[in-house]
Nucleic acid binder design. Structure first.
Lengths: 198, 198
DNA sequence: CCCTTAACTTACCGTATGGTAGGTCGTCAA
DNA sequence: TTGACGACCTACCATACGGTAAGTTAAGGG
């Protein structure tokens, strides 16, 4: 039962941190969700910060697992990766939300926990762009800027899900979601096909 | 001096709320920044929630003022608006950060303070898209999805500023920023010129 | 049977928080 | 001169927080 409890605590913490942010959730609230006291939680994780760190680490591990590098044309690798990312961020919107909170906080909390996972990810992303045929002569900032815009299009929409549903209703949101996916494919195609500006 | 203090408190609150979020800032910390006690702040605003509400209202007022509707071709109106938005969100990144936090929290705090300003904004945005020549036959979700992607590309990058600077250094970030702007112009152009998918 | 260990619990503790109550002080109109 | 009012302040309070200390209980190995 130990593994179970630990894992359940991490699940609950992930959800609550994503919804309310680090300071918006008390460890008592997390433990309470499973019918435990906060001391049970502290027994497993020591401090609130460490719990948060483990939640973050778990997400970034799953994130890395997304990279699916079958040898294909760079164009297809890049496009497929972004499609994966889009699927993933809609299937697990809390994770995206939590990472976005990290992006917002960052310089605040202990050693900017979010930075270490982000840099390698962005580096690999830039590599993927510069491998594209039309982007071979682009500078690294140009490549990263392009990828980052697609990233923004994906993540921003993902994070907006609950709010948009609240505003427009779930029927309209369903249409929005599929329109978003189609439009995203177009955007990716356009970016790949056009090469850097100028 | 009253007006002054009030305004200064709002400025400080805006900055701190944007940096650390609602729960991450105490009213004492805000007042302290101006050499006041928290009771001075409470004297002006009554409660923390009300202060937060006023901060939010101020931002959304500035936001509305962005709309600059000289009669031009819909294509130019739309493109210019997004360029304005981009400029604005980089000139005042805290505002963008705060609005993004609202997007993340939303369903939590009292009556989802963020929703009321967002819907009219999105409605007007969708109108601007459907006025475009190539988008006249598009559905409303299609139009909104397109605009939302550009919105995401803009805001996500804006919010990432400090983190990206921290990761890559301010020199690289400078290049990234100008590359982002050029690439954004391309994206907007592509979206306007292509029409809805399918 | 005993000892250890993991997984909890209850009982605390110091600190920080949002908010209330009641005062002080300067300004300004009658 | 006085009285009211706005802009603060000090003093205080109840609550909630993260964390420590010291048990209790059940399982497993020697």
């Amino acid at each position: 039962m130990a593994r179970d409890t630990r894992e359940q605590l991490l699940d609950t913490a992930e959800t609550l941190f994503a919804e309310r942010g680090f300071y918006g959730v008390s460890i008592a609230a997390i433990a309470d969700e499973l019918g435990l006291t906060k001391q049970a939680l502290l027994h497993h994780f020591g401090t609130k910060e460490k719990l948060y760190g483990e939640v973050l680490k778990r997400i970034s591990d799953r994130f890395d697992a997304l990279e699916d590098n079958r040898d294909q044309a760079p164009e297809e690798v890049f496009a497929a990766y972004l499609r994966n990312l889009n699927t993933w961020s809609h299937a697990q919107p809390q994770q995206t939300a939590l990472l976005m909170r990290e992006l917002l906080d960052n310089r605040q909390r202990a050693g900017s926990a979010g930075t270490w996972y982000l840099k390698p990810f962005l580096d690999r992303l830039a590599d993927k762009v510069l491998a594209l045929e039309k982007w071979q002569d682009a500078t690294r900032p140009q490549g990263l800027a392009m990828a980052y815009q697609l990233l923004g299009a994906i993540n921003y929409f993902s994070v907006s899900g609950p709010t948009l549903t609240g505003i427009f209703g779930s029927s309209f949101y369903g249409d929005l979601e599929s329109a978003h996916e189609n439009q995203l494919a177009l955007l990716i195609e356009a970016a790949i096909g056009s090469g850097p500006p100028g």
